[in-house]
Structure formats: C-alpha cells, structure tokens
Amino acid sequence: MKKYGMVIDTKLCVGCGACVVACKTENDVPEGLHRDWLVEEVTGKFPNLHMEIRSERCNHCSDTPCVSSCPTGASHIKKGSNIVKVDPNKCTGCQACVVSCPYNARFVMPEGYVSKCTFCDHRVEKGESPACASVCPTHAIVFGDLNNPMSRVSRLLRARKFKTIIPEAGTDPNVYYLI
C-alpha cells in the first residue's frame, strides 16, 4: 500500500501561485474553482514580523470524514493508496463531504458533482509528480510515498521540523508543512 503525501517547505515557498495555475490547467478546473490555493499568515507587529506562506489543498487524510459522510460511496479512497477521490457517476451532489471537510478543499463542479485535488493520480500512475509539485520554482512542494522510509518526503520529515494544518480536527492529514 502506498501512502502518498506532500511535504511543503514554507521556508522556500514564495507564494507565486504557479501551483494553483498548473493545477487549473492540468486538470481543467473550471473558472472560479480551485483545487489548491495559497495562504499567507502574518504574525507580529511592524517591524518584528513573521510570515508563513502555504500552498494548501486536500490533505488526503488518513481519517476521512468526507468518505465516511458520503451516502453513496462516490467519495472514496483509491485502491492501493490513500488518495481520496470522487466518482462523478456515483455523486449526487448532496455536499455532505463538502461540509464535512475541515479544510474546505471540496467544491461542486458546474455539472453538479463534487470535485477536489486528486494528487494528480493520473500523473502519479505514470511515475510523475503532481502538477503543482512539478511546477514549483523553488522546489518547495515535494510529493512521495510516506510508507517508504527512503523517499524524499520521509527523509524531509525526519530531518526537519514540520506541522500539519489543524491536526486538532482529527483527520490525520498527509500534507506536511516544513517550518
């Protein structure tokens, strides 16, 4: 079983948004909808300031309220991995999953079904990294198998201090932020 994850280095991320545009074009994400987005968090008072920039997306959590709240099985975990996906042919658009996601990572497509980040599994199947990771100019986004101790993501998590977003929501996210 693969446990895919992302390790995003907030020290390298410059918030350029290339990840957002690469995702939109790679996946034909319709106008106004976003599978990934950027958050800037500034703390302190002038001139003692700190800023963290994060490229955020679905966390492909290990504990998935979006999958467990789905009444039809449309929201599911892809076989052999932890990639959380939506099957448009099963989705009723009831939005239980949209409401259940603490990260607001899901949205309704113009056609009516729910969509979200897929970790570009169509690319991953071919051994490529997701579009956002492949475009990042500072190589801040690293994708890989967390179950493999020799993968870059695993090594980064061993070497660096990291955090996840709102771990207290209890979803056990698989997108890590190096701090």
Binding site: S69, T72, P88, C91, G93
Partner: peptide, 28 residues
C-alpha cells in the same frame, strides 16, 4: 432535499449503496 442536491440525475445513487458511516445514507 432533491432541490438541494446538485447532481440531480444521479439521485438514485442514494439507493445503490448503504454506507454504514454516513448518516445521510441511514436517513435515506
């Protein structure tokens, strides 16, 4: 409820599965 759901042609999907963890499935 039907007015709320967005993928209306697929409403029948509520009844092709029983998802034990989903209150909505129980409800339906």
């Amino acid at each position: 409820l039907f007015l709320d759901i967005k993928h209306k042609l697929f409403v029948w999907r509520f009844y092709t599965a029983f998802e034990i963890t989903s209150p909505m499935s129980w409800g339906s």
